[in-house]
Simulated assay, not measured.
Amino acid sequence: MKKGFRVFLALVAVLCLVIAGCGQEKDAEKKAEAPVKEQMAVGFIYVGPIGDGGWTFAQDQARLELEKTLGVKTIYKESCPEGPEVKEIIRNMIDQGAKIIFAGSFGYMDYVEEISKEFPDVKFCHCSGYKQTDNMANYFGRMYEPRFLSGLVAGLKSKTNKIGYVAAFEIPEVIRGINAFTLGVKAVNPEASVNVRWTHTWYDPAKEKEAAKALLDEDCDIIAQHQDTAGPQQAAEERGVFSIGYNSDMKDMAPKAYMTAPVWNWAPYFIDQVKAVQNGTWKTHSFWGGLKDDTVRLADLTSNAPEAAAKEVETYTAKIKDGSFHVFSGPIKDQAGNVKVGENTTMSDKEMLTMDWFVEGVVGKIKSNE
């Protein structure tokens, strides 16, 4: 009887093993048949090298923050020309699984627009442009706000009342920045002027440094800039005067000259857009974030900044954020003394985005207006 029972148990055990084996085989077959879910990739196209310490560096720091926060795979390409070859770079990123691509410079706009129509299922975000399609958005920051704040610092620091500004190209973005900076300077130092020298470069440390030296030769004692290198600030440090940086905190590159810098904080925008793609809620848009959105900031003041600057910066920052002050509210005159923005009037976004004239206090010419 006991022997028979043991045989029965052995048969049951064998049957269980057979059933389990069949189940595992079926599970394995199901797994083999199920499509492998591909990880979404996010593409970034940069106009300069990630080590420039400026524009591209700030974007790449935000890319790294995106990876850390959402755990997504990112692809980036440095020093991409602003020409038709960018289309092949975009196609290559799409082949690698990119579902959303951030194109980080104005000159990519027309090519991104063209590609967006070729790949309607991929989302595109283009920086500093104005074109949109169903799957192409544009984004930028109200850099003119911290530009104004940095102008307060420069205006309070200058003893010669001549401030130099090394500028990139005669486009509305740069002109708007020069104007905002000048309005900040003159808010605290009505006698000061802002002297502009064009380089027609985004990234040329030697040329930008030489432009700063030329301004210093003209008795400027503060150097500001709109390029991606620290060359202008290093020129200021070599002459024993002071500087305002741009894009990122550059204090380590010219520690004896650097006072502060208007800087970018792209991470919140990048994270929001990738989340929207993941959730299936992404829509085309035009984003222009400011101090209130934390898209732009003024970097911490260093000990080189004048004592009175911290209070002025704090006061105006609060007013900009609560809407009681707008950088481009009138009355504002142009270089010739003509009223361009009337009293109790504020420029519209469209007017600011197409700005092609200098405010009173700027010494220099816009090539297209010569």
Rank of each mutant, 00 (worst) to 15 (best):
S193E: 14
K213A: 14
M250I: 14
A261W: 01
V174R: 07
Q227H: 09
R197I: 11
E238V: 10
L215G: 05
H226A: 08
Y203W: 04
D217M: 11
Y258L: 01
Y258G: 01
A230P: 15
D219P: 02
D293V: 11
V194R: 00
W198T: 05
D252I: 10
A235G: 06
A267C: 15
G231I: 12
R197W: 05
Y258E: 03
K283C: 04
T201K: 10
V277C: 05
K251R: 15
V296F: 14
Q233H: 01
D252Y: 01
N247P: 10
D293W: 09
K213F: 05
T284P: 04
W198P: 00
V296G: 03
R197L: 09
V185H: 06
S193N: 12
V194F: 02
T199D: 02
T229P: 08
A180R: 00
I244G: 03
A211R: 01
K186P: 00
G184K: 10
D272C: 07
Q225C: 08
I222Y: 02
P262N: 07
K256M: 07
W288D: 01
L215I: 13
V241Y: 02
D217C: 04
I171Q: 10
D204W: 08
P190G: 12
A211M: 08
L215T: 04
E238L: 07
I222C: 05
W282D: 04
F242T: 03
E218W: 09
L183M: 10
